[in-house]
Design a protein around this nucleic acid. Structure first.
Length: 271
RNA sequence: UGGCACGCAAAU
């Protein structure tokens, strides 16, 4: 049953929920982990209806099943459904609570998110970061900063979210200062900072950051490409595009959009 | 020692 479940998850990870379901149906035995994995397979591919059917059909449910549904409702914008799930959960754990904070944050319900956070008997870094993000998403820089400063521990995710909070407020300077004090920088934090530079419109800073990066992936390359594109620098944009070690759908779309934006129909078509 | 759920980066 473990091998079968591994296969189901593998298909789900590649967006193939129908194949996942085909395998699931052929499993000789299914335990709760298998059922939960199948719910997640649908959830990851946005199949709310199907996920709900699995949830209703399963012989028994645990806290993972309930939490998965809560998250799915929240991520689909069905906050009422998420709330209903939460209320009907027979048991709750830290993950469930954290998911609820995120759900409230996404729905703009800051007060309730904070009330939830305050009422928790245990919190981990994810709880703090989810609350930090809730403030940031809703434009409350002060609240975000209070969370960030008050956290017992910060990891790279919390740093990145705080950095984005500054960047969203147009404060590249604060973002830069924060980035400089970040203890361990990884590809995501570098790219997040790169993106902050790009969004500020400071092309020099963007290029300088890009050149200083210890390593780059397709996301960082595309961010650099986008920086030139939004500045209307089609030549540079194209040379970045041509130099990229890899391209994906997003990088192609960025290049295409750059041409379209500037009215270069022929190049767009050729691309 | 193996399988499921929570918080981060790029385009539309």
């Amino acid at each position: 049953v473990v091998s079968w479940t591994t296969m189901v998850v593998a298909y789900a990870d590649h967006g193939k929920h129908e194949e996942a379901k085909f395998l699931f149906d052929r499993m000789p035995t299914r335990d709760m982990v298998a059922w939960n994995a199948m719910i997640q397979a649908y959830a990851r591919n946005g199949q709310l209806e199907q996920a709900k059917q699995m949830f209703d059909a399963m012989p028994e449910r645990n806290v993972v099943s309930w939490t998965s549904m809560l998250q799915l409702y929240a991520s689909s914008g069905h906050f009422q459904g998420a709330s209903t799930m939460y209320k009907s959960m027979p048991e709750r754990n830290l993950v469930a609570w954290n998911s609820l904070i995120s759900a409230y944050g996404q729905s703009g319900n800051l007060e309730t998110a904070k009330a939830t956070f305050d009422s928790m008997k245990e919190r981990n870094t994810i709880s703090w970061t989810a609350m930090l993000q809730a403030y940031a998403q809703n434009g409350h820089l002060e609240g975000a900063k209070t969370m960030f400063d008050g956290m017992p521990e910060r990891d790279s995710v919390s740093w990145v979210i705080m950095l984005q909070a500054y960047a969203q407020k147009g404060s590249l300077e604060s973002a830069k200062k924060l980035f400089q004090t970040m203890p361990e920088k990884n590809m995501v934090s570098w790219t997040a900072f790169l993106s902050a530079c790009a969004e500020s419109g400071d092309l020099e800073a963007t290029k300088a950051t890009f050149d200083r990066m210890p390593e780059r992936n397709v996301v960082s390359w595309t961010t650099m490409l986008q920086a030139y594109a939004r500045a209307g620098d089609l030549e540079f944009a194209r040379s970045v595009f041509d130099s990229m070690p890899q391209r994906n759908l997003v990088s192609w779309t960025t290049m295409l959009q750059a041409y379209a934006q500037e009215g270069h129909v022929d190049e767009a078509k050729a691309l």
